[in-house]
Nucleic acid binder design. Sequence first.
DNA 1: AATAGTCAGTTCCAATACGGAACTCATAGT
DNA 2: ACTATGAGTTCCGTATTGGAACTGACTATT
Lengths: 163, 163
Amino acid sequence: MRWQDIDQQPCSMARALAIIGDNWTLLVLRDCFLGVRRFDDFQQRLGVTRHVLSDRLRKLTEGEILEKVAYQQRPLRHEYRLTGRGRDLYPVIAHLAQWGDKYLADSKGAPVLRIHKQCGHPLHAQLQCGHCGDIVEAKDIRVEEGPDYIGQLLPAQMTSRTK
Amino acid sequence: MRWQDIDQQPCSMARALAIIGDNWTLLVLRDCFLGVRRFDDFQQRLGVTRHVLSDRLRKLTEGEILEKVAYQQRPLRHEYRLTGRGRDLYPVIAHLAQWGDKYLADSKGAPVLRIHKQCGHPLHAQLQCGHCGDIVEAKDIRVEEGPDYIGQLLPAQMTSRTK
DNA sequence: AATAGTCAGTTCCAATACGGAACTCATAGT
DNA sequence: ACTATGAGTTCCGTATTGGAACTGACTATT
């Protein structure tokens, strides 16, 4: 299977990764959340080739994660802004950055601090269950196939097990 | 800049993505959290070529996200299991899948349900601030450079702004 | 004893994607 | 007239991928 066909799988993650799972795309999104909006700024900060950047920005725009907004006429120039859909990816970015801070930081500490405006402290991101309010880890979750997918998605040993 | 050199940047996300940001790697991790552990099972479920799978599993093992555990001798066979570090990536996977469920699902609904064992309901993942307990969105965060990186990481307009 | 099957890879080759650099096009500034 | 800005596109040599076959150490079946 080619990478460009994975969005046809019945899997939400596969479809999400078809848009943002490319090699440079999550770094583009990192910069979006830092306030970068213009082509040349992305290019200089990331060091990615212009060709690849152009392709990734196009895919993000087609996926409605970014939108092109004109910031001047004559000559017409656009900048890339996060849409609501795009901003909803923030938890992914926050947890990814926090995981990197925890396991891959060098002696100089975390390069960027994410401060929670409301309480003023560096964000310590936790995964919370919206229903009961508990903090959730991998071991607290069991998976089930949706009604239309029984017996199709999970490895055999998972369909009978609790864990 | 080549993709293989991004782990040298002073950015936790870049370093994390150097291990898990490759095209197929997050799908490999998805399957790990579904309980898949063996080479051929990954290969059949993902449809990725064996060559690429071998490479990605090696990188995940080198990054201590997976570990090779012998499950039989004669002939010696290994399976790939998530380490503690690997399980700590669960919030990333959960939010990614939820984002896909929300924006990219078709008429058949979410293919896989993640049930929170403690409360029995499908997980509604939320990003919570561990300090104050509030639910956090992108707009609630401002970024600051770490002490050793002043003036080096953020786009110019962010260093003076609040947002 | 010979054959087929399992499993985790490795090897080979053609097709695709990437990195680097230069180039385009419309316009503004000096 | 000349230079700069900004968002790309074009070109070309190199690196990576997709697909399929092959390897090697066994176990199971005939």
